[in-house]
Amino acid sequence: MCGRYATTRSAADLSALFEALDDTAEPLAADYNVAPTDAVPIVRLSRRAAEAAAPAGEGADAGQPPARRVLGLARWGLVPPWATDPRIGARMINARAESVATSRAFAPSFARRRCLVPADGWYEWVRPPGARRGAAQAYFMTPADGRQLAFAGIWSVWSRPEPMITSSVITTAALGPLAKVHDRMPLLLPEDRWSEWLDPEVDGTALLTPPDDDYLGGIEIRPVGPAVGNVRNNGVELVRRVPLVGEQGEVGGPGQASLF
């Protein structure tokens, strides 16, 4: 998976979609060009949020309320608690499904601090055979029906000098037509997996499998313009389909038949 994606829904919309308490503290701006180290929305479980939302008078005698889903912000690029410099997070935006359970940096978060990363879709670049350096075609992978995606994620807290929540997206081997764009893709979680993924009492290794072919078949592979290559660009135009005509009159890169 490349290091760019889009997340454009408001905090109110995401809170409703994920049945989560809104703890973002500031309005979420639509971001069509999320890049490493950006602040991104995540959904995680929080016992503190559950306690704050508990009816007055519920104390220790009533038992602790169960953890609640909370929508908050995290810096994209996990910084392990033992790191001495937060800049390490820029190299840790993704965690491989094959090693996340054993990695020194990721395993503690995978075991106890899993999260959902809301997304509209993600970007990859393909360089047509024989094309000049830099002449890569950008693609936006997004649900054809416009539904919300949830990437499997993990989070951690780095506490120097002040607590900062950071996160990573888990990636897996790409399947089907998506493998023609890139050999990796984010691990996508259908809604029926959300609760188990967030629950630290559930063994996460059993959930490190991509969704079925029907789900993946609903992902559109959309050619988009080159403006997304510049992290300073933002706006709905970045995700608009561009018609590219190859030698065979098919959609594809310049001088090339369609990959799809």
Rank of each mutant, 00 (worst) to 15 (best):
I221E: 00
I165R: 14
P190K: 12
V169Q: 06
A150K: 06
W194A: 07
I154G: 05
G217N: 12
V228T: 04
P190C: 03
V224S: 13
S168P: 06
R222E: 12
P226F: 06
W197F: 11
W194R: 02
D199K: 00
T209Y: 02
K180T: 11
G225Q: 10
L175E: 15
M185Y: 07
M164N: 06
A150G: 10
R222W: 12
M185D: 02
I154Q: 10
V231A: 04
P200S: 04
F151T: 06
F151N: 05
E220H: 04
G176I: 05
P163L: 12
P211A: 10
A179K: 13
L208T: 01
G229A: 08
V157Q: 14
P177L: 09
D192G: 01
L207I: 05
D199L: 02
T205E: 14
V169D: 00
G225S: 11
P163M: 11
A174D: 03
E196T: 11
I154F: 10
V228N: 03
I219G: 10
G229R: 15
D183T: 05
G176E: 13
L207D: 02
L198C: 02
H182G: 06
S156K: 08
S159A: 15
T171L: 09
L208G: 01
R193E: 08
N230G: 02
I165Y: 07
T171R: 08
L175P: 02
G218P: 04
S156H: 09
P211D: 08
T172F: 03
L198K: 00
P211T: 01
P211Y: 02
G218N: 06
P177Y: 12
V169R: 06
H182S: 05
L189E: 11
V202M: 04
D214Q: 07
G204E: 04
A173P: 15
D192I: 02
R184H: 03
D183C: 03
D213S: 15
P186T: 09
I170H: 05
L207Y: 03
V157S: 13
K180G: 13
P177K: 04
V181N: 01
A150V: 05
